[in-house]
């Protein structure tokens, strides 16, 4: 036992012993704990309003049993339901940090970040053939355009972290100040609609330009100038929420 006289070697051996104890302990108790949590999860999710589509997978990204669940299937739900489901799963005794498969986990993963300008092209492709229409002289989005807004929200979803400018434009008819106000109201309405569909609010800026920026090649009085434009301004790196703050993303 002479070699144990050296303190550093003894300490290192002690650490190795700790590691082996943890590995063996984890091998025996880990799957049981994860299974126990996974058993309680579906009832809790259903109670919180997540239905049967949302599933909690108690596995780490590398496949080991974990007490931090990955929640899948939350795409069709709205933000408040997602938040409620996240809080409910977090409240299971023993469960840890919630990750959503379509939320911040995308940012932390090693997958290549999508080029944000690509998002702008997607949205412009959508809006080329169809416009977001409003009711006469008001900022209420009319019913058929709601589906288009949902598609725009879908196209903007991968642009987490991008700052998107929503600009409302009108044609020249009527007083200038009223046009600016109306175009701003409409841009704000689109902004609210997108927020309701899950795009983070601090990434959306709305403004109204009235008839000051007509489409290139068109006269300002042309009614085709009445439109909503989206522009991706910049990307801010997303700060993922810490593991122990269960949220909608």
């Amino acid at each position: 036992m002479q070699f144990l006289r050296s303190p550093y070697l003894a300490i290192a051996l002690g650490a190795l012993l700790v590691f082996m104890l943890a590995a063996i302990g984890g091998r025996f108790t880990g799957p049981g704990l994860a299974a126990q949590l996974a058993q309680q999860a579906p009832a809790v999710i259903e109670k919180a309003g997540g239905g049967t589509r949302v599933e909690a997978h108690f596995r780490s990204p590398s496949g080991w049993p974990s007490r931090h669940p990955l929640l899948t299937g939350g795409e069709p739900l709205d933000e408040t339901t997602r938040q409620a489901v996240a809080l409910a799963v977090n409240a299971i005794p023993g469960a840890g940090g919630i990750r959503w498969s379509d939320g911040d986990a995308l940012v932390e993963a090693d997958e290549a970040r999508l080029n944000p300008l690509h998002c702008q092209e997607d949205v412009q492709a959508l809006l080329r053939a169809r416009t977001i229409r409003f009711e006469e002289s008001s900022a209420r989005i009319d019913k058929p355009s709601r589906a288009l807004i949902a598609e725009v929200a879908q196209a903007l979803r991968p642009c987490l972290g991008a700052i998107i400018a929503i600009t409302g434009h009108t044609d020249k008819s009527g007083p200038d100040a009223a046009n600016i106000a109306l175009s701003r109201e409409r841009a704000l309405a689109v902004r609210q609609a997108l927020i309701a569909r899950g795009i983070p609010a601090d990434g959306l800026r709305a403004e109204g330009k009235g008839s000051h920026e007509p489409v290139e090649g068109l006269l300002p009085s042309d009614p085709a100038n009445r439109r909503i434009e989206f522009e991706v301004l910049a990307t801010e790196p997303i700060k993922p929420t810490p593991v122990d703050t269960p949220s909608a993303r």
């Binding site: 700790v18 943890a22 108790t29 704990l33 974990s66 007490r67």
Partner: peptide, 30 residues
């Protein structure tokens, strides 16, 4: 984090604390 990794971190912290306390006692008595 996998469960075994969390166990390892906790046990390592306990080990380090134990070492520190043990060393303090040893230093006192010598």
């Amino acid at each position: 984090m996998p469960i075994w990794m969390e166990l390892f971190v906790l046990m390592l912290i306990a080990y380090a604390l134990g070492l520190a306390i043990g060393w303090a006692i040893w230093a006192r008595e010598n």
